[in-house]
Design a binder for these strands. Structure first.
Length: 458
RNA sequence: GGCGUCGUGGCCAAGUGGCAAGGCAAGGGUCUGCAAAACCCUGAUCAGGGGUUCAAAUCCCCUCGACGCCUCCA
């Protein structure tokens, strides 16, 4: 079976072939850290975490790079408004984002480069672009000369001629061409800056990603990812810079996730319609958001809403319930064995088709049902539970709710459950129910099964 | 205006030429001391119109509607 994925560059699904056999170099654009991150940012990180996990399931060795843009206009503006140091402001939000990644069960990237830590590489790259006439300096700023890049616009499917008409923002008069974009920006007094051949300044937004790619992954990478709002101009410009310099195709596959929407519109700061990751995680566990992502296709917009979150949580609970209890005292079940094969085949076929997680998830639910049937029949459900657990892990779903504070209460709960078992044996229903009700009030769900009572945190 | 995506049962959402997955919600039933969970049963002809085809949600055209990018943005 061949893995196929949709390439924004060609607008079609293509067979996945890596530069180096068995290895994947993947670069994903991370956030600009000037404010709290919202669930849309989390969605993007989750999408590429799931892709990474599946590639690893398919035995690829993945080198995963995710950057932080830690110096730019927004960061500087915000820092000025709050009267703090821009670098420290960025540092703060990076720390916060890292905690979110952990809570969302996102596997750590191989490297987390930052613009401010790649200044040397960035300057070197701009110099080389200047030497080959792809860049020009004006008053301490350096711009990329778009007209010298013959196939500019390839990724986003637009022609420089078409775009001129649409240019609305006040054009910088010093640019040779309105399409040209900044590689290096001269610093105003008080702004963070680094010395360069063009005077003190800082890198433009696009060049940092080109430089970090070159530095950490090389001239040619396999997957370059990010939100589809980055297709133009960010990724277009990255291609222009990198390919103009190396003369080689930059990324083989450009993969873009759709936007998270709230009330029918893209979640974004400017519209004020956003839910921060912090707020989300205060009310829900990270896996709930992951379920929402899994239940849709990554290239389409994802609807956010409390009803959708609730449905995701219930579905997650269903998968987890099938995992417990694991009782292996029964006879093997041929039906389950068959379902296991169907599940694995279906799961891989779906995922091989441009990471169709929603389709693959359907097979997991099918397996869960057969596992439950097997349990009801008193047969051995463990083989099915093992596969379910394994594939949930490929999705990054935890087999049980993450331990919360106070979970060290477990031995005491066990004790109460044990006492209650005795009460039930003596048919003291009122007392027995009281124990269960009181535990429910404390956030513990207790269920009586054939094999005794099981409990879990709600 | 240019480029692009999308419109499937109450909600979320797969499927993209051959009798419409799955989850959530809802209703009925089984099991259970009760409850919960689980299991069983029940529902859509795929925005609208036209065309191609033996056959279309799936291909082509038109209409309507929603959204994204074209400016910082995951």
């Amino acid at each position: 079976m061949t893995l196929r994925l949709y390439n924004t560059l060609t607008r079609q699904k293509e067979d996945f072939e890596t530069v180096q056999s068995g290895k994947v170099a993947m670069y994903v654009c991370g956030p600009t850290v000037y404010d709290k991150a919202h669930v849309g940012h989390a969605m993007s990180a989750l999408v590429f975490d799931i892709i990474r996990r599946y590639l690893e399931y398919r035995k690829y060795e993945v080198r995963h790079v995710m950057n932080y843009t830690d110096v730019d206009d927004k960061i500087i503006n915000r820092a000025n408004r709050e009267g703090v140091d821009p670098i420290q402001l960025a540092e703060h939000y990076i720390d916060e984002f890292k905690l979110h990644l952990r809570d969302l069960n996102i596997k750590p990237a191989t490297v987390y480069p930052r613009a401010t830590q790649e200044i040397t590489q960035i300057i070197k790259m701009i110099q080389e672009l200047g030497e080959s006439d792809y860049a020009y300096a004006v008053d301490g700023d350096v711009y990329f000369r778009v007209k010298n890049d013959a196939d500019y616009g390839r990724l986003s499917g637009r022609k420089p001629e078409d775009m001129q008409a649409g240019a609305r923002i006040g054009v910088d008069e010093r640019k040779e061409n309105p399409m040209d974009f900044a590689l290096w920006k001269s610093a105003k007094p008080g702004e963070p800056s680094w010395d360069s051949p063009w005077g003190p300044g800082r890198p433009g937004w696009h060049i940092e990603c080109s430089a970090m790619n070159l530095h950490h992954l090389g001239e040619q990478i396999d997957i370059h990812g990010g939100g589809n709002d980055l297709v133009f101009p960010h990724h277009e410009n990255e291609i222009a810079q990198t390919e103009s310099l190396t003369g080689k195709p930059f990324a083989r596959y450009w993969v873009h996730n759709g936007m998270m929407t709230l009330h029918g519109e893209k979640m974004s700061k400017s519209l004020g319609n956003l839910v921060t990751i912090e707020d989300f995680l205060a009310k829900h566990e990270g896996d709930a958001l992951r379920m929402m992502v899994l239940n849709s296709s990554y290239r389409n917009p994802l609807t956010f809403g409390e009803d959708v979150v609730a449905a995701a949580e219930k579905g997650l609970e269903r998968l987890r319930t099938a995992l417990r209890p694991a009782v292996s005292n029964g006879q093997p079940s041929p039906e389950l064995q068959q379902q296991i094969e169907t599940t694995r085949r279906g799961f891989e076929e779906a995922m091989d088709d441009d990471f169709n997680t929603a389709g693959a998830l359907g097979y997991l639910f099918d397996l869960a049902r057969v596992v439950n049937q097997t349990k009801d029949a008193g047969l051995d459900a463990v083989p099915g539970q093992a596969v379910l657990r394994e594939l949930m892990d490929v999705f990054g779903l935890r087999p049980e709710r993450l331990a919360a504070e106070g979970e060290q209460a477990a031995p005491f709960v066990d004790l109460l459950v044990e006492v209650r078992r005795e009460l039930r044996a003596q048919k003291l229903w009122a007392l027995s129910d009281m124990v269960r009700n009181r535990l429910t009030e404390l956030g513990i769900v207790l269920e009586d099964t054939k094999d005794g009572a099981i409990w879990r945190w709600k």
